[in-house]
Design a protein around this nucleic acid. Structure first.
Lengths: 258, 258
DNA sequence: GTCACCTCTTAACCTAGGCTAAGATGCGGA
DNA sequence: TCCGCATCTTAGCCTAGGTTAAGAGGTGAC
């Protein structure tokens, strides 16, 4: 109920509300930024490595991936782009894009003119700071991706990214208590984690056999969040967030809020 | 000679001059940003994961590393911080730092107040855009680090980072034609590339035996840049830069400039 | 209804890179 | 000068994760 006004400004509004209380002027500005809508069908690659960028985008709905491909076909996914995230915030400042972006699901985007962003920092500095916070958080997510791939085992990596996604989706009201929609094939997961498809499959089986999580179709169910957080050595401070309460506590506070 | 005025504004000024022509007002602003200087001795960890950040910094001189450590001691270096780079540009917006920073050499830093940066975007938007370009470039460097670790072999990784460093150092006049100071132990290189020390040693030997590069003490000499670029599949567009001319061509144009 | 074509799953085998250990080299400090 | 410590180097062995292959569901197009 308390969320109703925030929901009106989309996933980005929900996300920003977690760090600043938006004034009316700032809400107007946020809405102006999200006036235009562009639909992108599932599977479309709509930003191409090596070609000029032009626009930044805000994701209204759906999932995308930012990725790079080597000449022999090896692919590395940099990160997942979720509702409320920016795509290519600074990219229009560059000659050409240094990566590609593709829609994992049907996507709704708000294109944002580079000039709008420049003005934003001048006219509406608190909102500008909140956008900068998003940029810093995206960089922190990328930094954690480096650690995940560089120094964690396959088992840790896989558990870690699931907990990260739970946190990020919770922030924009897209995850349940301990489960969420995961529109990913094992191939996508492999290219994200720097593993082979076969090994991702083996690793998911181990996580399932150990009672940590289960993937059924397009949905992940985290069966023991505490154990998962501990196995993956997950700490949420890189997301500028607090640890998630345990399932039972959450259920209690959810009940209390009714 | 043409560089003299730019040199007066430090490594950051040199770097920014590659993307925008600075006006007098912007040069003043850049100088105001770099008024204070703080010295940090080699080996000091001066930003601590999990503690509040407070300041951003501009590196005047020296090398640093941004890194994270897991509870069992595994360490992953996120990237190298070189003269002219920012440290923690957005970090003061966060509760606490998500990584640590340590000096690899004696370091001279310019601390920058968060408020100064906020004003910068309002008062001096072109310089603000240039700072945003730096932020975007740092993110692109981190993205390339993900690909390097996630999908390249040890041999490719090692060659790739050397070429990246050559490019980045050239931009701030810290590299020769085909060689530069590299104040890194093999352990640092290992923690950067997600490899073991022993394997870094083996890999450097292979690069040397193949006539691509040689590390003597604190200096790298690239013996065959073209072959190295090709073996590492290095493309500089993520640095918003053009490919480096081959050694001979550079020598010619350097001679022509005299 | 069936034929492609994804995606998932598992088994069997292989290799890039990790780990252990032991010298060698080099250097700052007493 | 010599000691202690960090770094480099190499050899030998081991394992996490890659590769290949083959079958099992599922599903959308015709």
């Amino acid at each position: 109920m308390a969320l109703k006004t925030e929901k009106a400004h989309g996933a980005l509004g929900r996300k920003l509300s977690s760090v600043i209380k938006l004034s009316n002027a700032e809400i107007d500005c946020l809405e102006a930024m999200q006036k235009r809508v562009k639909a992108v069908p599932e599977g479309t690659e709509f930003v191409h490595d090596g070609e000029p960028y032009g626009y930044s985008y805000i994701v209204k709905q759906g999932w995308a991936i930012r990725f790079k491909t080597l000449s022999d076909g090896r692919r590395q996914i940099l990160n997942f782009v979720l509702p409320g995230d920016f795509i290519g915030l600074f990219s229009p400042l560059f000659e050409v894009a240094d990566h590609s972006v593709a829609a994992l699901t049907d996507l709704e985007l708000h294109p944002v003119e580079p000039a709008f962003l420049v003005d934003l920092f001048g006219n509406c500095p608190r909102l500008g700071a909140a956008v900068a916070w998003c940029a810093g958080r995206d960089e922190a997510i990328l930094a954690e991706q480096v650690v995940r791939i560089g120094r964690r085992s396959a088992y840790e990596r896989t558990g870690h990214i699931i907990v990260e996604l739970l946190h990020r989706l919770r922030l924009v009201d897209e995850a349940g208590l301990n489960s969420f929609e995961l529109p990913l094939t094992q191939e996508i997961l492999a290219d994200t984690l720097g593993l082979s498809i076969v090994h991702v499959n083996r690793t998911l089986r181990r996580l399932r056999e150990n009672g940590l999580l289960r993937i059924c179709g397009d949905r992940v169910v985290i069966e023991d969040l505490e154990a998962l957080v501990s196995a993956a050595e997950f700490s949420p401070h890189y997301l500028d967030a607090q640890p998630l309460p345990r399932k039972t506590e959450t259920a209690i506070s959810a009940a209390a809020a009714l």
